[in-house]
Amino acid sequence: MSLINFNAYDNNPPPPPRRARRGWLVGGAVVAGVLVVVLAITLRPATGQSSGPAANSDPAADLSFDPVRQQGVCLDGLQPTPDGWAQGFAAQIKTAVANLEAWDTDPENPPNTGTEQPHAGLNLWMKAVYTNSLSTDNPQFTAHAAIRSVSALKTPLPTNADPGDALYQRWNSAFEQTKADRKAAITEASKGADALGALQFPPHDSTFSGISGCISALLDDVPDVTDEHTHSASPRSFLIATDCNEPVAPQLKGSFNGATLYVIQSCVSGIADECSRYFQQFSDRMHQLHVGQIIQIPEDQAPDAIAKWIQNGSLQS
């Protein structure tokens, strides 16, 4: 029988046999692997939940929006247009704005099924044409209506949800926001219609219509903007009612940036060639301001066209 001399190892035990060392290494690796798996399961976000608190608390996550439409109107009530002609269109626009929220008959109880569609808002500037439509600031010849967009729930009421649950609280905040949007939009439509109805016009007997100046002033009041909710460009369009004859020097400034201009033309003389020439001269000036389409609206179709334009921001289907 042989004896092991431990003194030969400087009081340290000898290394274990190679096979034993391999077992220790394998066992350590298994334990480390188990710890990694446990940590991964512990730190992983729960299924269907966000890893960040902001996504769980922002009610916008449960809302859909349409942008606020940017629109501008110029009304030429000066000779030779008939007395009261432009004021008639102003009244039609006022009525159309007042009716914008007529769809909402129960703002206190918006649907909670997530199937409702959002409704676009409206930022509308309306101006009366006068001689220095661009260079002179006459606030009585300008009216403004601002109506917010109405959000809609895009997710239904959570079923079997605990009222204390963060996702339920977020949904409930979204529900309260769309209810507040609906009530506020009704009030804003009424106030906006009243403001438009208070628009004043210069004396009809003036014959110096600065129609291009009025458009240029609108381009400044109704700029290209990015909608705060959709983060996309807000739809932008313009309408003018005029005889298209501009007896003063053009006042050109700003840019349509491709926006559409609708034109209701009064052909006072009844001479088609003359009225066509006025329209072409006016169109050429608008192209200098980078207008997109110029679409004429026949006078007899104006009431329906105005209502549709206020409602949708466009006459195209």
Score class of each variant (00 low, 15 high):
154 K>N: 15
162 D>T: 09
166 A>I: 15
222 V>H: 13
156 P>T: 11
183 K>L: 14
190 S>V: 09
165 D>F: 07
223 P>D: 06
199 L>G: 01
170 R>N: 11
165 D>C: 07
162 D>C: 11
189 A>I: 08
213 G>T: 01
169 Q>S: 12
193 A>Q: 05
177 Q>F: 10
208 F>A: 03
172 N>S: 12
206 S>F: 10
149 S>T: 03
196 L>C: 00
154 K>D: 03
165 D>K: 04
179 K>H: 06
154 K>P: 01
156 P>K: 07
201 F>H: 06
218 L>M: 00
212 S>K: 01
153 L>P: 02
167 L>C: 08
160 N>I: 04
184 A>E: 05
217 A>W: 14
183 K>G: 08
173 S>V: 01
216 S>R: 02
217 A>T: 04
213 G>P: 01
198 A>K: 12
167 L>R: 14
175 F>A: 13
212 S>Q: 09
200 Q>E: 12
179 K>E: 13
224 D>M: 15
198 A>N: 08
166 A>E: 14
193 A>E: 09
187 T>H: 06
148 R>P: 01
217 A>P: 02
219 L>V: 12
217 A>M: 08
204 H>E: 11
180 A>I: 05
158 P>L: 13
185 A>T: 05
199 L>P: 02
198 A>Q: 11
218 L>D: 00
174 A>R: 11
158 P>D: 07
154 K>E: 02
191 K>E: 10
169 Q>T: 13
181 D>W: 11
218 L>G: 00
221 D>A: 15
196 L>S: 02
185 A>M: 07
161 A>K: 08
196 L>M: 01
161 A>C: 09
164 G>N: 15
155 T>G: 06
153 L>F: 09
204 H>A: 12
221 D>T: 04
204 H>W: 10
182 R>K: 10
149 S>G: 11
202 P>L: 01
191 K>Q: 14
213 G>Q: 00
157 L>K: 14
212 S>E: 14
149 S>L: 00
148 R>L: 07
150 V>H: 00
205 D>R: 02
219 L>A: 13
200 Q>I: 01
182 R>H: 06
158 P>W: 11
189 A>F: 05
223 P>C: 05
167 L>P: 06
167 L>V: 14
185 A>C: 05
175 F>C: 03
159 T>P: 04
164 G>F: 06
197 G>E: 12
168 Y>A: 09
171 W>M: 09
175 F>E: 05
209 S>E: 12
162 D>M: 08
211 I>V: 15
176 E>A: 14
197 G>F: 02
220 D>L: 03
200 Q>P: 02
198 A>D: 06
152 A>V: 07
177 Q>C: 07
176 E>T: 14
184 A>R: 15
199 L>V: 03
170 R>E: 11
154 K>M: 09
151 S>F: 00
195 A>I: 04
149 S>H: 04
195 A>L: 08
181 D>A: 04
172 N>H: 15
204 H>S: 06
153 L>T: 03
211 I>S: 11
213 G>C: 07
198 A>L: 02
153 L>N: 04
